[in-house]
Design a protein around this nucleic acid. Structure first.
Length: 245
DNA sequence: AACTATCGCAACCGCGCGGAT
DNA sequence: GATCCGCGCGGTTGCGATAGT
């Protein structure tokens, strides 16, 4: 669009982490002047640095406010419900983080985006699910991904996975399932499934086996419904492994 | 204890959209 | 209709914290 200038090309403007003093100035200003958006405040973000006495660009001020200083922000870990909601919404909306954020009060698009990229996305990849399409990779793609992730990417057969699931995964699996189950060094999600498998938890392991062997589309219409199904087994937090143990 | 690798989050960058002129 | 301008969005980067060796 017609040769816009970068907003931050003015010399003397600060970049990088915000100081407490800067935060204070910005908060004070916004509390005193009310909201932007053509409202009664009579200011726009571009004016904020000048009006608030900050040596920042307006864009940086807006970002700091919306992502960090807003009083209605919810900090801390995502709840199980939020995670499931994110997955479900992402399946429908794709990377439209701002749209997803609308459905999660107190969470910013940046929050959700970060959480997706650092936690959920990797889990899905390792489970053979394309995080972009929410469909399973073809087996070759899975192998390629695993080749990158582990040194010995030899794929497990469905039988091997099944057997492995019946045993201690961390001990049995030296290959990709182990990576898959313990991406970040947290507890083994699959152990929970094993426990539930005993008492009519049904085919949790079986379904997982299908998932791992690439038959997810035959068992679930979408990944989000899959997560809901795991929710029935207590598979509620795919990142933190905080199952009912 | 020192070093290295990895993770997670805050912040930046560039682009596109939509309203105003 | 063309151009300008501000905002918001999504992708990416930088860096401190933490874990592993």
């Amino acid at each position: 669009m017609g040769g816009r200038k970068p907003c931050c090309d003015e010399v003397g403007l600060r970049k990088g982490p915000w100081t407490v003093e800067e935060d204070g100035k910005l908060v004070d200003f916004l509390r005193a002047r009310g909201n932007c958006g053509g409202g009664g405040g009579g200011w726009c973000w571009r004016d904020v640095p000048k009006l608030a006495g900050l040596r920042r660009c307006g864009k940086s001020c807006r970002l700091r406010w919306t992502n960090y200083l807003r009083p209605d922000l919810k900090r801390g870990l995502f709840t199980e419900e939020e995670i499931q909601l994110v997955i479900d919404l992402h399946a429908r909306l794709g990377n439209r983080w701002s749209k997803i954020a609308v459905e999660l009060p107190g969470r910013t698009d940046n929050d959700i985006k970060n959480y997706w990229n650092t936690h959920i996305k990797r889990k899905l990849i390792r489970m053979g699910i394309d995080p972009n399409t929410h469909r399973r990779f073809d087996q070759q793609k899975v192998n390629e991904e695993e080749t990158i992730l582990v040194n010995d990417p030899k794929p497990l057969s469905e039988t091997e996975v099944s057997v492995a699931l019946k045993n201690d995964t961390s001990a049995v699996l030296s290959g990709n399932l182990n990576q898959l189950a313990d991406v970040d060094g947290d507890d083994q999600p699959w152990s929970f499934l094993m426990e539930n498998d005993e008492g009519g938890g049904g085919d949790a392991a079986g379904e997982l086996t299908m998932l791992l062997s690439g038959d997810i589309t035959s068992s679930c219409s979408s990944s989000s419904s899959l997560w809901m199904k795991y929710g029935e087994f207590g598979y509620e937090d795919l990142e933190l492994g905080c199952f009912d143990v």
